[in-house]
Amino acid sequence: MQRIKKIVLAFIVLTITSCASRKEIVYFQKDQVDQSKTNTTYKTVFKADDLLQITVSALNSEAVKPFNLQTVSYSLSTDSPTGRPQQQTYLIDNEGFIDFPVLGRLKLAGLSRTEAIELLKNKLSPDYVKNPTINIKITNFSITVLGDVKMPGRFTIPNERISVLEAVGLAGDLNMSGIRTIEVKREENNEIKSYKLDLRSNEVFNSPAYYLQQNDVVYVEPNRSSSQDAAYNKNTGLFISLGSVIISLISILTR
């Protein structure tokens, strides 16, 4: 009878432990998605250090040539062009400006893509180009995922649109030891802001950091046991070496 009680007790403890583990690990378990609050909008806002590719098109192809400059590489030995010409890119400087052909310095930092296109259209038409079509692309749009994930690293995003869940997917998902409340670091108005997102809750879809912006950093913290194991493994060699030295000293002194 006593043995049966022990088995039942062990089963109960195991069940409770399993439930607790599941609550700490499984995504989207806490609540239902409130569609009225879901963050479905995304807007790219240009920032300092963005590298922009700006293409100007119009019916008059000659009129747009000065605004679609191309760059080529030159051989050091022959001083002749090598490779295919690439379209000129424009780096937004620390003050938020680019230096655009003919038009000069234009402030694009802080503008959305729509606002920047409208600005360029107003500058170009009708004096330089009639009814221009303008496309702006960030060529260095990237995000970084660090911490307790399978493949941490920096990832380039060609279409400039990525959610925090997609970023976690690019990094191979969280390890089992990764805490499910992750952190997004973002530079806004010359300040670093932090956003906490609990992947166990459907509230993650309502976060202002659900869609990542260029240069965002996603950090996954390891749980306590994983951190302790890492610290233990790091110091094990030191303890063994120290123990060997102490044993050697004792052996010498007791001879």
Rank of each mutant, 00 (worst) to 15 (best):
V8S: 07
L9C: 10
C19S: 04
A20L: 05
R22N: 10
V26P: 03
F28E: 08
K30C: 01
S36G: 08
T38L: 09
T38M: 09
T38D: 05
T40H: 05
T40E: 05
T41P: 04
Y42S: 06
T44S: 00
V45S: 03
A48N: 09
L51W: 04
L51I: 10
L52M: 02
S57E: 13
N60W: 01
S61V: 15
E62A: 07
V64R: 02
F67S: 09
Q70W: 02
S73R: 14
Y74L: 08
Y74C: 04
L76C: 01
T78H: 10
D79F: 15
D79S: 03
P81K: 01
G83A: 02
R84S: 03
P85R: 04
T89D: 01
L91G: 08
I92D: 00
D93V: 13
N94S: 07
E95S: 05
I98F: 00
F100S: 15
P101D: 02
L103R: 14
K107L: 14
L108N: 07
L111F: 13
E115K: 08
A116K: 07
K121I: 01
N122A: 15
D127R: 00
V129S: 05
P132Q: 00
T133W: 06
D148F: 01
K150G: 05
P158R: 03
P158H: 10
E160D: 13
V168P: 00
A171P: 12
N175A: 04
I179T: 03
I179E: 13
E183R: 11
K185V: 14
E188F: 14
K196Y: 14
K196W: 11
D198Q: 05
L199I: 10
N206L: 08
A209G: 05
L212S: 02
L212H: 11
Q213N: 07
D216E: 09
V217Y: 06
E221K: 00
R224I: 13
R224C: 00
D229E: 08
A230P: 00
T236F: 15
F239W: 13
I246Q: 12
I247N: 01
L249H: 08
S251N: 07
S251V: 04
L253K: 03
